[in-house]
Every structure is written in structure tokens, then in C-alpha cells.
Design a protein around this nucleic acid. Structure first.
Length: 322
DNA sequence: AACAAGTCCAACCGCGCGGAC
DNA sequence: GGTCCGCGCGGTTGGACTTGT
């Protein structure tokens, strides 16, 4: 049996920006069946998209718990440090910033941080004012660091294979408080379904802005207010109304996605749709677990330690592996 | 106001990995 | 052991938006 054609060769597969309708269909489907088995998602959900596109849309945009908007100084520092440590392994970096997607981090790096570091490199040959290592040293030790990371990951995989008990301890130690396991590399399913509605609302807002005469006709049923350009309540709010009163039984507008994270109390307010996702979720964002050396170092805003120290630390961990 | 250049980001593309058979 | 297949990752692109002239 031959390999089926890649999705991009299948006739009838839609490409380009997702419409709010498609978003809703996808979220509804995943709400019901959970993420995974992406191959079956487009056909089962009735979407004219390839499985890859569905997965990407979900992981990069619709997945609950995604924080959007400007990166904080702290996040920025973490990205720079982690990039120095891990190289362009955005998924690994994203695991330390669970509210950000690898795509977001990658984009932010390429559009902001790369330039910033380059600029700073001109001023300081060793470290910039924030203590960021300069890219010169990044490229120099990149392979070594990558190797260290690989060893580290291999160690974890081995530990898991050898002893469940031990692995859980390692996971507790090594994992960020709410990040995915580096062993599994799975996406973060933290937070709640509520945030998906925020994401769709954003999508709808953008969609309405971009294509006022577009195929929204079918979603007119959910849109109860005038367009944002008409100087009335934002499409986000409008969309929320639709979601709140229709598909989704809770008031998502209560939850401000601009916040660093949702509090436990807020999380408890979510209804069945939310808990559906929480079941498959990693622990709440607010749950704190002991930080590793790396994490402590990363979270230390005043940290201006050099990269060599980080490598030493990493090597130290590696040395104790076997 | 009009145009050009720069910026941003969602989405696409191709590759590699690992499990299933 | 080889092949198929699903999935995840990193790099890249295209188009909308913003800023500068």
C-alpha cells in the first residue's frame, strides 16, 4: 500500500486564515473528543482542512492557556537565557514558558530579540547591560549545549523507563510548575476551555476587521452587535456575548487573559466545559513545585550570571547522570 | 494624503522521529 | 529489519498592519 498523498496535495483542502466558524467547529470537536488523532479530526469534525493545519491552529492559537500580547521583561530574559542554553529549540524553550507557544517565542525571537542582542553586541563584547550573553558565545557553544540537553533528555527518558517512581521525582524536579514534560514533549493543556473562547473571540474580531463582507454570513446568528468599526462595543465583547449565551455556558469575559495566570479560585468557577479540559490538563498554573537550579536561575531577575556558569551547571547535572 | 519601508504574526512547508505493523 | 503513518518541530513565507518620509 502506498503512502497517501500529503495533505497539501489533497484536493479540496482549504488553506489560509482560519475563520471563526472553523475555530468553533475545531474547538467544539476537541472539547468533545480531546486533542490527538489529528488525522481523524478534519473528517470527523467536518473541516476542509488538513490534519496538520488543525493541530497547528489548536496548539498555536486555540489551545486554552495561551497568553498573547506583549512579552514581559521577565519572559524576554528567560527566552534569551534559554536560547543561549538550548539553541533554537523553541518547543523546549516554550516548555518553560507554558503560556507561550513555540511559534510565538520563535516569532518574538526573530523579530525582537535577535535584533536587540545584535544591537547590544555592538556596545558590549561580553555581556549586555541586562546580563544577556552575546550571540558570539551563543554560536560557539551551541553544539555543546545541544548535546548536554540531549543527554539530559536521554537521562530523563531512561529514568522513566527504569523506574516510574524515580521518574516522577525527576519530573517534579525538572519540570516547570505547569509545563509539559520534557520527556513526553507534549503540549501544555493547562488552564481552561474558557481561554479558547477568548482566542476565538480574538479571531472573530480580527476576521470582522479584515473581511467585513466575508463569509461571516453564517455566523451572523452569533453576532448580535454592530461591527467594531461602527464605534460600538468591540467584536471581542460581541463575540463573547455570542459564546456566552450560545455554545459556551460560562461567562468567559470574566477571565482576563492578559493576566499572568488564572487564580485557583477563578479556575474553580469554570463549568463542565472547562473541567472537561482540566481533566486532560497538567496541574493548574498556580501550583508551585520546587524549582530546579536552572529555573531558580532563570527566575532570578537580578541574575547576571555568565553563560559559562550555566554550562558548568549543566555539565554538573550531566556528570551525575550515569 | 500617498507611497515606501519596516514590522509583526498566523500559517505553511518540509524534515525527522518513533510507534505500529 | 523495513516500511508506513502520525505527529511534532524548526524554518520560512505572505499578507496585514504600522511607521516614516
Amino acid at each position: 500500500m502506498g503512502r497517501p498523498p500529503c495533505c497539501d496535495k489533497i484536493i479540496g483542502v482549504k488553506k489560509g486564515p482560519w475563520t471563526p466558524e472553523e475555530d468553533i467547529i475545531l474547538v467544539s470537536y476537541i472539547q468533545e473528543h480531546g486533542p490527538g488523532n489529528w488525522r481523524a479530526v478534519p473528517t470527523n469534525a467536518g473541516l476542509l482542512r488538513c490534519s496538520k493545519s488543525c493541530r497547528l491552529r489548536w496548539t498555536n492559537y486555540l489551545r486554552p492557556g495561551i497568553k498573547r500580547g506583549n512579552f514581559t521583561d521577565h519572559e524576554e530574559k528567560m527566552i534569551v537565557h534559554l536560547q543561549a542554553l538550548l539553541g533554537n529549540r523553541w518547543a523546549a524553550i516554550a516548555s518553560y514558558l507554558p503560556q507561550r507557544t513555540d511559534n510565538d517565542i520563535k516569532n518574538y525571537w526573530n523579530t525582537h530579540l535577535k535584533k536587540k542582542l545584535k544591537k547590544l553586541q555592538g556596545h558590549d563584547h561580553d555581556h549586555n547591560q541586562n546580563g544577556f550573553p552575546v550571540s558570539k558565545s551563543i554560536s560557539k557553544g551551541q553544539w555543546e549545549r545541544r548535546l548536554q540537553t540531549d543527554i539530559h533528555m536521554a537521562k530523563q527518558a531512561l529514568c522513566e523507563a527504569l523506574s516510574l517512581d524515580k521518574s516522577s521525582k525527576i519530573s517534579d524536579l525538572k519540570q516547570p510548575s505547569n509545563g509539559p514534560s520534557p520527556c513526553t514533549g507534549g503540549p501544555i493543556q493547562s488552564s481552561t476551555y474558557a481561554l479558547s473562547t477568548e482566542n476565538i473571540a480574538r479571531s472573530l474580531e480580527k476576521w470582522m476587521k479584515n473581511s467585513p463582507k466575508s463569509s461571516l454570513s453564517s455566523s451572523e446568528t452569533t453576532r448580535t452587535g454592530p461591527r467594531p468599526s461602527e464605534g460600538t462595543p468591540s467584536a471581542t465583547a460581541t463575540a463573547r456575548q455570542g459564546f456566552d449565551s450560545g455554545l459556551f455556558s460560562f461567562n468567559s469575559s470574566k477571565y482576563d487573559v492578559s493576566h499572568e495566570s488564572l487564580s485557583v479560585v477563578e479556575a474553580e468557577n469554570f463549568t463542565t466545559e472547562a473541567t472537561l479540559f482540566q481533566d486532560e490538563s497538567k496541574p493548574s498554573l498556580e501550583i508551585q513545585v520546587p524549582l530546579t537550579l536552572l529555573e531558580k536561575w532563570l527566575f532570578d531577575d537580578g541574575s547576571a550570571q555568565g553563560q559559562d556558569e550555566l554550562i558548568d551547571m549543566s555539565l554538573g547535572e550531566t556528570a551525575g547522570l550515569f
